[in-house]
Design a protein around this nucleic acid. Sequence first.
DNA 1: TTTATAAATAGTAATAATTCCTATTATTAT
DNA 2: ATAATAATAGGAATTATTACTATTTATAAA
Lengths: 121, 121
Amino acid sequence: MRYSHQREAIKKTIQETNCHPTADWIYKETIKIIPNISLGTVYRNLKCLEESGDIKTIYDGNIARYDWNTEPHNHLKCKHCGDLIDIVLSDESIHPQIKQDFKFDVDLVEMTIIGTCQKHT
Amino acid sequence: MRYSHQREAIKKTIQETNCHPTADWIYKETIKIIPNISLGTVYRNLKCLEESGDIKTIYDGNIARYDWNTEPHNHLKCKHCGDLIDIVLSDESIHPQIKQDFKFDVDLVEMTIIGTCQKHT
DNA sequence: TTTATAAATAGTAATAATTCCTATTATTAT
DNA sequence: ATAATAATAGGAATTATTACTATTTATAAA
Ligand SMILES: [Mn+2]
Ligand SMILES: [Mn+2]
Ligand SMILES: [Zn+2]
Ligand SMILES: [Zn+2]
């Protein structure tokens, strides 16, 4: 994979926010730096960055969001404001139980905890 | 909400499968019974059935799937064949921990466990 | 049992997110 | 500097879903 000005800007945009942005948000931010970047380039590079392990894709309902935090973690999702908050839970304990009960070989546990965040109290 | 032949057929289609079908799959099945049903009618009634509590919508990546099983449960997702398998885990134990640690009021825990099912051994 | 009312439908157009296509541009090895 | 080709911009195409509207249908009243 060859260097590109565009890919670096996209990566930087993602790494500078905690908001788990969508492709469109990333496009609107990156276009401020590279005024003629195209949305197609954003999508293509999001895929590159995911493949190189620089970012992670998360599916929030039926929209893709992107996360600079590639460490295993889960999310709290507020049903009022839609915010996604990172949490780390020790869910490794589930793996052997499932392997035994369902003959299912676990890679990862994707957990989203839905509720109300502290902003709405 | 008024009775409709179409809605009943859609509901029956969902209740007769364990495959967590997409809207399109449901459409293709239901059209065998009601040959002139439209995809819009399928989508509209899926929303009705969700609101009335007859079915549950689950998001698998960026596509919506529908589930007749409205009891709280989670899914094993096979990364090879894409199958979704129902499981029930007692995850209630994490609710109070999260409330304390994150001041986040938990409604439900959506968990998808990704790995390899027994078909690929 | 007709008739009136409005909810639901079929068919189609529109939208939103994402991917694909291609002529042009930019990176990088020589 | 030049050549080779990976990456881009811009736009078209695709896919999933929603919106629109004239017509049909369920249902309640006469
Ligand atoms: Mn995160
Ligand atoms: Mn299920
Ligand atoms: Zn909130
Ligand atoms: Zn499988």
